[in-house]
C-alpha cells in the first residue's frame, strides 16, 4: 500500500480527481458537439444560406439539460460535504498548537496537557529571502494529527499548510482552527494566503516534521532554554 503523505490532503486530492473527471466529461459532451456543428453547418452560398427556422427549441431537450446537471451538481456538493466533514473533524488524540499571525510573521505556541504554553516559536519577517533560521522553524511530530488554533494580532491572515492542502483564516478577535497530519519527516512550506499588506508574500514559515521521539526531545530541550532567557 502506498504511504499517505498528509491529511487532509489525501481526501482533497481524491476530491480534485473526482471533479476533474466530471469536468472533462461535461466538457467533452458540450464542446465536441459544438465543434462538430460549426464544421458541419457552415454557410454556403446557393446551398445553405439560412438556418433551420424550425429548430428554435425543444422542451424535452431543455428539460434534459436542466435536470441532469441539477443531479450532477447536487451529487458533487454532497460528496464534497462528506469530505468536508473529515477535513473539519479533528481526530482523537490530536496535539494542539496555538498560532497567532501578525504583520508579517507567525507566533507558534506549544501547550502542555493543562493548556499552558510550554514553548514559543516566532518566525521573524524576512522581506528579502525565503531562508528560515533553524530556531524559527515550526517543529511538529510526524504521523500525529495536529490541531492548529488560529487568531491574529492585527489584520486578517490565513494559515496555509501546503503539503496538507488546507487553509483557514486567522482573524483578529476570533479563534478559528484547522487540523493536519504529515507522515513523512521533512521540511514543508506554510504560506499566508489572505492579503495582509506589503509583507504578504513574505509571510511564510517552514514546517519541520520530525519523528515523534525527536519532537519530544526538542520540546523539552528548548523549554529549558526559554526559561533561562526569561531569567535574564
Amino acid at each position: 500500500m502506498e504511504e499517505v503523505l498528509a491529511y487532509p490532503a489525501k481526501w482533497w486530492n481524491e476530491a480534485v480527481l473526482v471533479w476533474l473527471v466530471v469536468a472533462v466529461v461535461i466538457y467533452a459532451v458540450t464542446a465536441l458537439p459544438g465543434i462538430y456543428f460549426i464544421v458541419k453547418y457552415r454557410f454556403k452560398p446557393g446551398e445553405r444560406e439560412i438556418g433551420d427556422q424550425e429548430k428554435h427549441g425543444h422542451w424535452g431537450l431543455e428539460a434534459l439539460w436542466t435536470i441532469v446537471p441539477t443531479i450532477v451538481v447536487l451529487v458533487l456538493a454532497t460528496y464534497s460535504f462528506a469530505v468536508f466533514k473529515k477535513q473539519r473533524t479533528v481526530p482523537e488524540g490530536a496535539m494542539t498548537i496555538k498560532v497567532t499571525g501578525f504583520m508579517w510573521g507567525w507566533q507558534v505556541e506549544y501547550l502542555d496537557d493543562k493548556g499552558n504554553t510550554v514553548k514559543t516559536v516566532v518566525t521573524a519577517y524576512n522581506p528579502t529571502s525565503y531562508e528560515v533560521p533553524e530556531e524559527q522553524k515550526i517543529v511538529v511530530p510526524a504521523g500525529k494529527p495536529i490541531k492548529v488554533l488560529l487568531t491574529s494580532m492585527d489584520v486578517i491572515h490565513a494559515f496555509y499548510v501546503m503539503p496538507a492542502k488546507i487553509v483557514e483564516d486567522a482573524v483578529p478577535g476570533r479563534i478559528t482552527y484547522l487540523w493536519f497530519q504529515i507522515n513523512k519527516p521533512g521540511e514543508y512550506w506554510v504560506f499566508c494566503r489572505e492579503f495582509c499588506g506589503t509583507g504578504h508574500s513574505h509571510m511564510f514559515a517552514k514546517l519541520k516534521v520530525v519523528p515523534p521521539e525527536q519532537f519530544a526531545l526538542w520540546l523539552k530541550g528548548e523549554t529549558e532554554l526559554a526559561k533561562r532567557s526569561n531569567d535574564i
Binding site: P33, F37, R42, F43, E62, T66, V73, S80
Partner: peptide, 28 residues
C-alpha cells in the same frame, strides 16, 4: 456550497442552448 453549485444549472442551460443553436444553422 449547495446554493452555489445550483448556479451551474441556469448557466448550463444557456451554454447548452447556445450549442443547440448552432445545430442546423448556416454558420458564418
Amino acid at each position: 456550497s449547495y446554493t452555489t453549485v445550483l448556479v451551474a444549472v441556469p448557466t448550463g442551460i444557456k451554454i447548452f442552448n447556445w450549442i443547440a443553436t448552432l445545430h442546423g444553422g448556416a454558420i458564418i
